[in-house]
């Protein structure tokens, strides 16, 4: 053949290109040369025919029937996309909420422990957690409660900001002199915490509480304290806290506080009141009003709340991580 020297036209060169030639993958001029060679060379033509035959046979081989469906037992879009994102959002929110609450309670605990040791702070702070229990459940009821409490002015220097003592930074403050200026009305911390389902019980308790304190506070301090501690504890467990409601702190503080606070204290925060109470207590301790026996059980609820909140933080945090990973 004339073009033997051209590698595309030697038998080996043609043989190497037959596969591509069959698939029409060669450039036009190369395709034409192979075509030309195949016309002239029986050997290469036989090779070409056998290749074509091979490919045709391969295509005719029976396909295996599908032995089974390979669909996966995966969740549908409603299960996977919609539900988890809701759950994810809730878990995120709950984690933040529980963490903030935990910090708040720890702050309160620190105040109680190092802030002078007066039990006054314990019930008052616990009450701060209890009081807002009304808020998330029914804002209108909360407003009514608020109004009702405001309508009881005799006892209560209460329009105080409940959140302040919750902040850990507030811890050293009670040891200082009761300075009204030292207590900013910051409502920064647990303000948005009003989501978890609130049992209705604490609400009624809160509503009832000021009255009981009013009546009992005059007669017997111990009963007032114990009665206030239990609902506070219960409400604390319900993890409901808002800064929006004025806590009836002063009402719940030992009678020594309530009585010792001057009427001008209405403007003060509960923290100040607590601090004042401590100052009063240290300055002129009234043994009949603060029995040490009741002091111990009043601190315990805080610990229980802390542990409970820690568990919640861990639980919701783990849920968030789990859902995030699945995403």
């Amino acid at each position: 053949m004339v073009e033997r020297n051209n590698s595309a036209n030697t038998h080996a060169g043609v043989e190497a290109r037959l596969s591509e030639y069959l698939d029409h993958r060669l450039a036009a001029h190369e395709h034409a040369r192979i075509e030309q060679h195949l016309r002239e060379c029986a050997e290469c033509r036989a090779s070409y025919e056998s290749l074509r035959w091979t490919i045709a046979l391969v295509k005719q081989a029976p396909a295996p029937a599908l032995p089974r469906a390979f669909t996966l037992p995966v969740p549908t879009v409603a299960q996977r996309a919609a539900r988890p994102s809701l759950a994810f959002g809730f878990a995120q929110f709950a984690t933040v909420l529980a963490t903030l609450l935990l910090l708040a309670v720890i702050g309160v605990d620190l105040i109680t422990q190092f802030g002078g040791g007066t039990i006054a702070s314990a019930p008052s702070v616990a009450k701060q957690f209890a009081a807002p229990a009304t808020a998330p459940a029914a804002p209108t009821t909360a407003a009514r409660d608020q109004a009702a409490e405001a309508a009881k002015p005799a006892q209560a220097p209460k329009p105080a900001e409940p959140t302040k003592p919750a902040a850990p930074t507030a811890a050293p403050k009670p040891t200082m002199a009761p300075q009204p200026t030292a207590v900013p009305p910051a409502a920064a911390l647990p303000a948005p915490m009003s989501v978890l389902p609130t049992p209705t019980a604490p609400r009624t308790v809160v509503g009832a509480l000021p009255e009981t304190t009013e009546t009992k506070g005059a007669t017997d301090t111990t009963t007032a304290k114990s009665s206030s501690a239990t609902p506070a504890f219960r409400a604390g467990l319900a993890i409901t806290a808002t800064a929006t409601l004025p806590a009836p702190t002063a009402t719940l503080a030992p009678t020594s506080t309530a009585t010792s606070v001057p009427p001008t204290a209405t403007a003060l925060t509960s923290l100040t009141i607590v601090a004042q109470a401590r100052a009063e207590a240290t300055r002129a301790p009234a043994p009949t009003q603060v029995p040490p026996a009741t002091a111990q059980p009043l601190v315990t609820p805080l610990r229980v709340i802390e542990v409970g909140l820690l568990i919640l933080v861990v639980f919701f945090g783990a849920t968030v991580v789990m859902l995030w990973r699945r995403k």
Binding site: L72, V74, P75, T76, V77, A81
Partner: peptide, 11 residues
Amino acid sequence: KGDGAAFNQLV
């Protein structure tokens, strides 16, 4: 986007 049913359509 996580739609298992859509993935199974592809399957």
